[in-house]
């Protein structure tokens, strides 16, 4: 245990802080690419698949995080395949897996007779009750995500800009898209312990939305998004301890609040920085 001040003076809060920071960094980094590809809801779709994996793990009485990871990675690759073939549009492919996932989760959880606190802890996160072993798993997954993105981020950016010319330039576009899908799945499963399956995608998208209003380059936008992600985790955890709130929901509310504040004051902030605000920089407002 580290000698940190309140609210992080207890061991369970310090473990929560470690996973919160790991996910606050990794989720927006991955999310930045999803948002640009108009796949903001991909995290949600995979989250629902992870739920089926958790329920399956409970039914088989194996470690639910492992089954969740298995199902989420397989599902992410399947979504990417469907989308890449162009036979089904990205959002329709997501919807298919989204509903199949949640339905399978409900059925499996029902069959395992575990529709109780265990299932709820995965749905809404259980950051304050995770063990040290769970925390180190989250941290290891987070580091793996950061390392992968450091390796492929530059090429993924070229794919996001224009997939066809990336292909013409000889970049391994399918492998890169597949790698992104896997990284999304890993991040979702790691972050599900922090904020829960229902809110996991928020950590991927909201900080990016905030950063996009302010950032000029992709690099600074990603950096800002990670800062907002970490800030939301720390502030959210502190507020949750102080007022006895559910931590997952509080973290996401802080991230949403940050977006509200930034988008309302963006004009003034950017004018001070000598720039016109980027109109239409709220994801989802353009098509």
């Amino acid at each position: 245990m580290l000698p940190l001040p309140y609210p992080f003076d207890r061991e369970y809060m310090q473990l929560a802080l470690v996973s919160g920071i790991a996910m606050g960094t990794a989720a927006p980094l991955v999310g930045a690419f999803l948002v640009q590809r108009r796949l903001s809801l991909m995290g949600d779709g995979i989250g629902h698949l992870a739920f089926a994996g958790v329920a399956g793990g409970l039914l088989l009485e194996v470690w639910p995080v492992a089954t969740a990871l298995l199902v989420a990675v397989a599902g992410a690759l399947a979504i990417e395949r469907l989308r890449g073939r162009g036979r089904v549009s990205g959002d329709l492919a997501l919807a298919l897996f989204f509903y199949a996932g949640i339905a399978a989760g409900v059925v499996l959880a029902g069959a395992s007779d575990r529709f109780d606190a265990t299932v709820l802890s995965y749905l809404f996160g259980s950051i304050l009750t995770v063990s040290a072993a769970d925390t180190w798993t989250v941290l290891a997954l987070g580091v793996a995500v950061l390392a992968t993105m450091a390796l492929i981020g530059r090429a993924l950016f070229a794919v996001v800009l224009d997939e066809e010319s990336a292909r013409v330039a000889g970049l391994p576009v399918d492998a890169l898209n597949g790698a992104l899908a896997v990284v999304v799945a890993v991040t979702i499963v790691a972050a599900m312990r922090v904020v829960g399956i229902l809110l996991v995608a928020a950590l991927m998208v909201l900080p990016v939305a905030t950063a996009q209003v302010l950032g000029r380059s992709f690099r600074t936008t990603v950096g800002l998004a990670m800062a907002v992600g970490v800030g939301s985790s720390v502030v959210g955890l502190g507020a949750a301890r102080q007022w006895g709130l559910p931590p997952g929901g509080t973290i996401v509310l802080v991230a949403a609040g940050a977006f509200g504040v930034v988008s309302l004051t963006a004009e003034r902030l950017l004018r001070r920085a000598g720039r016109a605000p980027a109109l239409g920089s709220v994801p989802g407002t353009s098509r």
């Binding site: 070229a158 800009l161 330039a169």
Partner: peptide, 20 residues
């Protein structure tokens, strides 16, 4: 080019992507 209207990227970043 399917450029997202809200893409946060500078001219230099876009051009550099071509260098890959």
């Amino acid at each position: 080019p399917a450029l997202a209207r809200d893409l946060p990227a500078t001219v230099e970043e876009v051009v550099a992507a071509g260098r890959l």
